[in-house]
Design a protein around this nucleic acid. Structure first.
Lengths: 213, 213
DNA sequence: TTACTAACTAACCATTTAGTTAATTATAAA
DNA sequence: TTTATAATTAACTAAATGGTTAGTTAGTAA
């Protein structure tokens, strides 16, 4: 039988990325030290430099991976609802929301990167972003051609969707806290879960997209 | 006559905050060093610790100041358009957009703070955020009562507005770059300026808010 | 003129961090 | 079994950073 594996390059590398995803997407780039990542996955720090050029290299890998995941999921659900703009759009919003709730720090991370004009942003990930946007554009165009949607700026609609999700996800913990004390009658949607957020956004975006007769 | 002032505590403190605003809102918290701030305003580093408890203390001051500014401006334009939901909303969006374009890194900074559940967030600033939200809620409620707007979740509408602005501002440089090369026929709104962004968002939000008959 | 205080400086310290290196061990091919 | 190489480690460096401190001026009130 196979001896117990003491060395496994593939596994080690995977451990590094996974822990890096966890840490970067929880604390951000600067606040996460390489030592910390190494310790988190019980691997010597030098191993990180063995598998990746440097901290930024690892970071790029992390961001690319996360983006790749979104894209794959969004694309899958798109292909399941070909030429059905309403369903496609619903799936798009659902998928993005789900992913955002799973990695709540990702929006902040992304925004940070964008603020630097993509200075440290891997082109690989950058192109994935464009692909996602292209997909939504496609959905909107089809809807328009079928007379279901009115003419819009896809970029704006895209940002309305993911911008709202970003904020809902990011502020969730905060809103829950405020919701508890429930001072005044301010409704901060403290109880809103993933499905509700997704459904509400879809509902409002649809209203916005409704073709004028 | 008065001799030339060689020491001016008020001016020095002001210099520190102003440069800190500039740097923090351009590079973020971690990427900005205290030495850097001191150098930027030609003041000895120790002075920063003389006037502020520590780096975080200065940061809190900066964030509070920025929030205060938005609130004041938003509130002013609100009071100029009392009981005119449409005008109030327009002013709200205009003001927020203007501020965001002026401090393009602020959205990222804010999102970062929110991600930490406001761990490092000064309560002072936190309450300003709630005040801004309360103001929008008020506008929406009035619109509803006057039969101009339909019933909505203010929190969601709020996030749709500022979430979109955030992303438009943050990605501006990037979109301009992509717009130049203009590969494919993707419209990334590369030419959109402050006014256009503001107007488009207003237009779409209004459509979303239109009362059903 | 003296005494006092607020404003300011230069130098330093302790700690953290990204990144390196030289040595060591496991593994698989010869 | 030997050997080459891929994987791994401990220990290190150099630079940067937040924060401190001892001491110095400039302004002011008695």
């Amino acid at each position: 039988m196979k001896e117990k594996i003491k060395r496994d390059a593939v596994a080690t590398k995977a451990k590094i990325v996974n822990n890096a995803i966890q840490l970067f997407s929880t604390k951000g780039f600067d606040a996460t030290s390489v030592d910390e990542i190494a310790q988190a996955c019980g691997v010597n720090k030098a191993m990180i430099y063995y598998y990746y050029k440097n901290k930024s290299g690892l970071y790029e890998e992390v961001m690319s991976t996360l983006m790749e995941w979104i894209y794959t999921q969004v694309n899958n659900s798109y292909e399941k609802n070909l030429h059905e703009p309403l369903l496609s759009l619903k799936a798009f919003i659902d998928t993005y929301t789900k992913h955002a709730f799973q990695y709540p720090y990702f929006p902040a991370l992304l925004l940070r990167e964008l603020s630097d004009s993509g200075a440290h942003l891997a082109e690989k990930m950058f192109s994935k972003m464009r692909q996602i946007f292209r997909l939504l554009s496609q959905i909107l165009k089809e809807g328009e051609q079928l007379g279901v949607f009115c003419e819009v700026k896809p970029m704006m609609v895209h940002f309305m969707i993911i911008g709202t999700i970003n904020l809902m996800v990011t502020t969730q913990a905060l809103r829950e806290k405020v919701g508890e004390s429930n001072e005044e009658n301010l409704d901060v949607c403290a109880q809103c879960d993933e499905e509700e957020v997704s459904a509400y956004i879809f509902d409002k975006i649809i209203k916005m997209l409704k073709a004028e007769k």
